[in-house]
């Protein structure tokens, strides 16, 4: 005769409970460290996006984006001159979530460049978005309306050369930049 189902499953139930507790403890113990690592990676990108930026003078500001409060970074050089803002952003790519850092000039009206923090786009095509040829092409563009065009044909300040063979990935990056630019409100009122 078969034992009662609950009795048969007793080991599974006990194990699941014990493992859940172990995982909760690990998560609680390491959560802050992991968040710190992520932030350190973000900070290390700031001088690359805004050359001359002094990390010690970087100020973390709060900003509102789509009903959420996010941290953005205000970068200064060694002489306290405002160089611009760096805003973390994410959105849907072709395969998976793309995470970016977007660098703006002090007026927030022009881009200084982007940096791709994480992406899982097609190897060999879409994943070229991490290369400087693409990320640097955002410098000087007017965010809000930018879109990807056929490679080699970007002429105006709202056009970006798409990555060859990866139009959707390229447009995804433009969409993230546009969405964040339109939605971002520095707390205190300015855009």
């Amino acid at each position: 005769m078969q034992a009662h189902p609950l009795k048969q499953a007793s080991l599974v139930i006990v194990l699941a409970t014990v493992f859940a507790l172990i995982l909760a403890a690990v998560q609680l113990g390491l959560r802050d460290r992991i968040a710190q690592n992520k932030q350190a990676q973000t900070l290390s990108q700031i001088p690359l996006l805004l050359p001359g930026a002094d990390l010690k003078k970087t100020v973390t500001l709060k900003a509102a984006l789509e009903q959420k409060t996010i941290a953005i970074y205000q970068a200064f050089d060694a002489n306290d001159r405002l160089l611009g803002y760096v805003v973390p952003a994410q959105g849907a790519g072709f395969n998976d979530q793309i995470e970016l850092l977007i660098a703006y000039d002090p007026s927030l009206q022009r881009l200084r460049g982007i940096s791709v923090i994480s992406q899982k786009e097609t190897p060999g095509l879409g994943d070229n978005m991490t290369k400087p040829a693409f990320t640097k092409s955002f410098a000087g563009k007017k965010p809000g309306q930018i879109h990807a065009v056929q490679p080699g044909f970007a002429a105006s300040e709202t056009e970006i050369d798409a990555l060859s063979g990866a139009t959707v990935s390229s447009q995804s990056v433009c969409n993230i930049v546009n969405r964040v630019t339109q939605g971002l409100r520095l707390q205190g009122g300015q855009p």
């Binding site: 172990i22 995982l23 390491l30 460290r33 992991i34 690592n37």
Partner: peptide, 18 residues
């Protein structure tokens, strides 16, 4: 059992070998 230990390893790597 395997999934639990894999999650632990994943968190440890993220914390100490980011």
């Amino acid at each position: 059992t395997i999934a639990t230990f894999v999650t632990v390893v994943d968190r440890l790597l993220q914390a100490f070998f980011y």
